[in-house]
Computed example of a mutant assay.
Amino acid sequence: MTRADSIWSDVKKIRANAPLVQNITNYVVMNNTANALLAVGASPAMVHSVDEVEEMVAFAGALVVNIGTLSRHWIDGMEMAMVKAKELGKPIVFDPVAVGATQLRNEACETLIQKAAPAIIRGNGSEILALNKAASGGKGVDSTAAAEDAVGAAQAISKEFGSVVVISGQTDFIISGDQVAKVENGTPMMTRLTGMGCTATAICGAFAAINPDSFEAAINAMYVMGICGEQALAKSTGPGSFQVAFLDALYNLTLAGIQDAL
């Protein structure tokens, strides 16, 4: 099967099954990621309360945990949801937003990943380096390290926790143990509006919900992000129109469009 066929097969499965993707994510991107999941064909749930996260995870095809706007009670909800997902065999996708910037984030990431190792971890270069305690992190949520600089850290994390690690950047690296895949599709415009990294994490959740091979799911998800970014750029004049065009690209993605981009 070619890469284009693999991507398209997963997209068709998402559209046919509309998997529920349970998100514990940040206030900044809730609307963006929910709409992106709907556009690609999945069904988003944005539930974080300790009173219901375990019940919601039981219905979900995948759990996405994003630590962007942290607080203690949200960390409690994340832990409960991740432990329950692991118990039920549901894939967990984890986004260590701005890890390395504060002690709270460092402690939360360490606790959560130790409690329930994610199927997929996605971050920028600085976040992956910080997650591996190899650096002090980037400039808040922005990366000060190139994606390729974090490959060694990603391999160490992958081998320690058995997780697939995605490093977003000008070139995306997807790592599973000693396996390294690259995705070079995308556009710098994706860095000009908030939440595109968080959207990539959520899209990884949709693909993980229908593809039990986390490495393949992550590769295909990142290709879809990059391809749709390129398609959106061709129809936009700036960040505002790009955001709308990106959702349209997710919704209108075709096999021919994928083949043309590869």
Rank of each mutant, 00 (worst) to 15 (best):
V53Q: 10
Y27W: 11
W74P: 01
A42S: 11
M56K: 05
A62C: 07
M30H: 00
V53I: 03
V50Q: 14
I67D: 11
M80V: 09
P44I: 00
S43N: 09
M56I: 06
G41R: 14
G41W: 03
V83A: 11
T69L: 08
M46S: 02
A81G: 10
V29T: 01
R72E: 15
A58F: 02
G77T: 14
V53A: 02
V28L: 14
E55F: 04
M30L: 04
G89A: 02
Y27A: 07
I67W: 02
I67M: 15
W74V: 10
T69A: 09
A34K: 03
E79S: 13
F59D: 15
H73S: 09
A45N: 04
S71Q: 14
A36E: 07
V57P: 15
I67A: 05
S49V: 01
V53M: 01
T33C: 07
L63R: 09
D76Q: 15
V65R: 09
G68E: 05
Y27E: 05
G68M: 06
H73E: 15
V40D: 03
R72F: 00
M78G: 14
V50Y: 04
V29I: 04
D51M: 10
E55H: 09
Y27L: 10
G41C: 08
M78I: 09
M30S: 06
V47P: 12
L37S: 08
V83P: 15
H48D: 14
A62H: 04
A45I: 04
I75T: 12
K84L: 08
M82T: 12
V64L: 08
V57L: 10
N66C: 07
A45G: 02
M82N: 13
W74H: 09
A42L: 06
K84M: 06
N35F: 01
G77N: 15
A34R: 07
I67N: 10
V64D: 07
M78V: 04
N31K: 01
A45V: 02
A60S: 09
K84A: 10
V29Q: 03
H73F: 05
M46I: 04
L37A: 03
F59V: 11
N31Q: 03
E55M: 10
I75C: 12
V53P: 12
L37D: 11
G68Y: 02
G77P: 11
H48K: 07
M82H: 11
T33H: 06
F59M: 15
S49N: 04
F59I: 14
E79Q: 14
M46Q: 02
E54C: 05
L70Y: 03
V65C: 08
E87D: 12
K84F: 00
A45F: 02
S71R: 06
A39N: 14
G77Y: 08
A81S: 13
A85G: 12
D51Y: 04
K84Q: 13
L63F: 00
K86T: 09
V40I: 10
M30W: 01
E52N: 05
D76T: 14
A85N: 15
E87S: 03
A81L: 12
K86M: 13
G89I: 09
I67F: 00
A58H: 05
A39K: 07
V47N: 09
E52P: 01
H73D: 12
N32F: 00
D51V: 05
V47G: 08
A45Y: 01
L38D: 13
L70P: 11
V50S: 12
